[in-house]
Write a protein that binds this DNA or RNA. Structure first.
Length: 333
DNA sequence: TATTTCGGGAACACCTTGGG
DNA sequence: CCCAAGGTGTTCCCGAAATA
């Protein structure tokens, strides 16, 4: 008994790298700590070290002596390293579903009695991202996801496809709705003809619903799992905030996805429609290249999927390509 | 005939512009 | 400064049309 006190034992909390179970160990110096620790944690002694859990500082004898009691340490075996709790985060994020379940459980229990709004926000955001059911597709596999959705939709992809279709349908509706504003009866008739052509083409391409349908191989805007990335504001090459979302993951993400916009780079109402009407008024310039306007209005050629923050509602000030407005006149030989 | 799909209209959110 | 108008988008609801 006396000898223990004489040795001025230090009490520490020791754990293996990447694990949360802690063991209380008393030791007078690092050598003793390693010897006891390796035995308790059942790891080989050879090449082992201890370091601070918090920031990964390796602990030598001098440093050990000055540590307060109950300090949190990590026992490293040969070849392992520890950069502090940042390592825990990367270990957790890069790990298996088993760890995810544990993390979800921990985050939930922390959240229940967390008072700070900032911490609650961080925890709930974390949960939001961890609780991912994106691998399930059918209604019976993830009924929560389908809450409030018409029973006719049997799969997530079906619903997402429909969601995209209806956005595109809305664009056509707006184009069509402009018809009464055209003064000249001749131009109005021409315009109606173009709208009809566009409608026929949209029916063939199923209103480009494939953009949101993760089952589609080509032309889909998301990954096989359903991840969409923000393409950045209309005047940017990419999104500096790296916004991303997986509406297939859970109900909340699905709802949140509705705040993401398909932004017309060249604006539909301010530019495309007026340019089209104007071009139809100049019959002498040639036959209208309505397919070009179709691509601007309804296809990825001119649509960017953006997070609401990257959706700039200012005037884009971009004109249609004057070389594409009319069909190329074939030169006579 | 019953069910599913479509499409029009209203409502909503958020933003910019411009005038009193 | 505030507020209305007009722009970017979205969803929800319900009746008609299409389909099984």
């Amino acid at each position: 008994m006396f000898r223990l006190f004489n040795k001025k034992n230090k009490l520490v909390k020791l754990r293996r790298r990447g694990e949360s179970t802690k063991y209380g160990v008393a030791a007078a110096n690092v050598k003793e700590l390693l010897s006891k620790g390796c035995s308790i944690l059942k790891v080989p002694l050879k090449g082992s070290r201890v370091c601070l859990y918090e920031d990964g500082t390796e602990v030598g004898d001098d440093y050990f002596r000055r540590l307060p009691d109950n300090v949190e340490l990590v026992l490293l075996t040969e070849g392992q390293c520890w950069d502090g709790f940042a390592s825990d985060i990367s270990l957790l994020l890069g790990s298996t579903n088993r760890h995810y379940d544990l993390l979800i459980k921990s985050a939930k229990s922390l959240l229940t009695d967390e008072q700070s709004q900032k911490k609650r926000k961080i925890l709930s955001d974390l949960l939001q991202n961890l609780e991912d059911n994106s691998e399930s597709e059918k209604r019976e596999e993830d009924s929560d996801w389908f809450q409030g959705i018409d029973p006719r939709f049997k799969t997530k992809s079906d619903y997402m496809k429909y969601n995209c279709e209806s956005r595109v349908r809305g664009y056509l509706k707006e184009v069509d709705g402009y018809t009464p504003n055209i003064q000249s009866p001749r131009v109005r008739t021409e315009y109606k003809k173009v709208v009809t052509n566009m409608l026929e083409k949209l029916k063939v391409t199923k209103y480009n619903g494939c953009y949101f349908d993760r089952r589609q191989e080509s032309d889909c805007m998301c990954s096989r799992e359903g991840w969409f990335s923000c393409q950045g504001a209309f005047d940017q090459d990419s999104c500096s905030s790296l916004h991303s979302i997986n509406p297939y993951g859970n109900r909340e993400s699905r709802i949140l996805f509705s705040t993401w916009n398909l932004d017309h780079v060249i604006e539909k109402k301010r530019t495309i429609i007026p340019t089209l009407v104007d071009a139809l008024g100049h019959r002498s310039h040639g036959e209208i290249n309505w397919e070009y306007f179709y691509r601007l209005l309804f296809t990825r050629e001119n649509l960017k999927l953006v997070h609401i923050v990257c959706h700039k509602k200012t005037v884009h000030d971009l004109a249609c390509d004057s070389g594409k407005i009319y069909k190329k006149v074939k030169k006579r030989k």
